[in-house]
Design a protein around this nucleic acid. Structure first.
Lengths: 339, 339
DNA sequence: CTTGCTTGCTCAATCGATGAAGCAGAATTG
DNA sequence: CAATTCTGCTTCATCGATTGAGCAAGCAAG
């Protein structure tokens, strides 16, 4: 064992000296290919024991510098403030470790500049592969990575220059809208148009969800006015402001809503509590996202739970296969009824 | 610019050749100490421009191998499934980046073996410093790090071998319990003992919170029966089971509860919905944790919001100062009233 | 014209791990 | 007994960046 506050780490050279052998023998033994290099099992065992005793730890910087692959896999993610991204990161780490990869994750707060900075930092640290989750500008990241020969997969939001894995936003939104409309019918005896709120009109997911939202209305023969589609951004404050403005303009508020994320729902609920609207009867809600406490919020909440394990299976299938086709894999989400 | 799918990265040697100079000059220019090394500003500018044009990116593995400090800072964290740890990670990353450090975070799912494995992996990657957040066995991690000369700070849960930053669990629990008791008094006209549920009896935080819970009862002259303190673990299922068993044993359930985390509250709420208890009147709730949707769950919920920015300020103050005193810094949390 | 100082660089060792090539000595073959 | 093969190692170059030491040219002072 190391004595005292000695800061110097044990290297293969130290072990070689202790074992009375060469550093390359030690290296061969410790990285497991000693059979190929014809090291005797006695020496292998002696070295292994010494390494254990001395608390030897491989210096990855040196190892990676020498090898061609780093076995480091990076992920950038917008936020850690909701269950969806939380479970993506958790699942990603577990699956990376299963494959003997070292996962590094960083959060970029939906900030394009930070996304680029983080991608650069990861490239400097020589990731073998980078997953861009919910990136505002996935193509920019792919471009940086491509210049360094690093493979990329887009997750949650698609890009045009790398394979992408996303939810079936149209299908999920269609089904979610259908259910909320049905709840309205059951509750009020008739169907009236819902409100769509949250997300960015410019992003693929939001526009697909709006398409599904419209399709479900069309199917039911319900006309949706333009003023009821509010892609006001993701932040709670944005949703709160949008609700206030809608209430000011309109006399009667819609009986049901399609909320584009839990984060937006946070703002919607805050507005409802503060404004005193909907006090007699809560609106029929649908949320394209899942959270256990949201599920407990009321009796008529429908939620879309995106299939995180399925999405990450698809991501790692792309990575494991080495395939780089520019395909977009769509994973069906699950609509869960509560109450 | 790199052409095509060229996978070879530009190195300082490539730049040196292009600039008709030496690699050491390039290195000096690009890492900013060219003045000390008496490189002319013309050459410096030429090299800088070339690096830009060629899309040069420093190879951190090589750089770190040569230097003594890696400027990599690691954090292990139990889960990403709640706002508390989410904001810890987000804040940590931001503060690390502010200091020019590269943050790497990994989640260890409250699994002691995974904690050790993750710590080892981080040491192999030569982190300068490791923050062990909510570790089940912080001292084991500190021991590993100490052997490699790596500094450690414990966060959220204290250890005995490294400085620790935690919430004032006793104080927070005392105040939280007082408020829930007061709510009971207001609602029912009298104070009856609350239920304590969630957490591990063996961990410091839970035992301190129980101490605060008891102190508030004592203060109010309310006797707490042993059977009302259920440190059943953190997982929702554990809390659900504990509630069921309590209901089976006891005729009357307590009018209020102190729930030790949002994760445990998830189980409690699930049990309440499923079992049909508390249907006439919800229990007065206190939760030692914060979540925006929990805040909307009912009219009588008190929540303790731990001061994440304050805690991380304390962590980085310890790191920045290089101080290694075995102190435990306690940060007061904030009790927020809802409804 | 020599000595000494400054300027502006280059050289070469180094960090630790890896693996191709090589080299003794033992064992086997003809 | 010589030739070949096999066994079990060692030697050395390499990955890319960093940095102490050194060196040549220019200039000033004596």
């Amino acid at each position: 064992m190391k004595r005292g506050t000695q800061t110097k780490r044990t290297t293969i050279y130290d072990l070689a000296e202790l074992a009375g052998t060469s550093a390359s023998a030690v290296s061969a033994v410790l990285n497991g290919n000693w059979k190929k290099r014809r090291i005797s099992s006695q020496l292998a065992e002696r070295i292994t024991r010494l390494a254990e005793e001395q608390g030897y730890a491989l210096n990855m910087q040196a190892s990676v510098l020498r090898r061609d692959r780093s076995k480091i896999i990076g992920m950038i993610v917008p936020k850690y403030d909701n269950r969806y991204f939380g479970s993506i990161v958790e699942q990603f780490e577990a699956m990376a470790r299963e494959r003997g990869l070292f996962p590094i994750v960083t959060c970029t707060r939906r900030d394009p500049a930070l996304e680029v900075e983080a991608a650069r930092a990861m490239l400097s640290h020589r990731v073998d592969c980078l997953i861009a989750t919910g990136a505002t500008d996935p193509d920019r990241i792919v471009e940086l990575c491509a210049a360094a020969g690093v493979r990329t997969v887009n997750l949650d939001l698609p890009g045009s220059r790398a394979p992408s894995v996303i939810s079936d936003n149209f299908g999920g939104a269609l089904e979610l809208t259908r259910r909320v409309l049905a709840n309205c019918k059951k509750e009020y005896g008739e169907m009236t148009p819902l409100l769509f709120i949250g997300g960015r009109g410019t992003d693929h997911n939001t526009s697909e969800r709006i398409r599904g939202f419209r399709a479900a209305h069309a199917e039911a023969g319900v006309v949706v006015d333009e003023s009821l589609v509010l892609a006001c951004g993701y932040a709670p404050e944005k949703a709160e402001t949008a609700m206030r403005q809608l209430a000011e303009k309109t006399g009667t508020l819609p009986r049901g809503m399609f909320v584009n994320s839990t984060i937006s729902l946070e703002g919607v609920m805050r507005w409802i509590r503060r404004s005193g609207h909907y006090t007699d009867r809560m609106p029929m809600l649908g949320c394209f996202d899942w959270d256990p406490f949201v599920a407990m919020l009321g009796d008529h909440i429908e939620m879309v739970r995106q299939d995180v394990p399925g999405m990450l299976d698809a991501v790692f299938e792309i990575i494991d296969s080495g395939n780089s086709d520019l395909k977009v894999v769509q994973i069906p989400p699950v609509v869960e009824t509560i109450g």
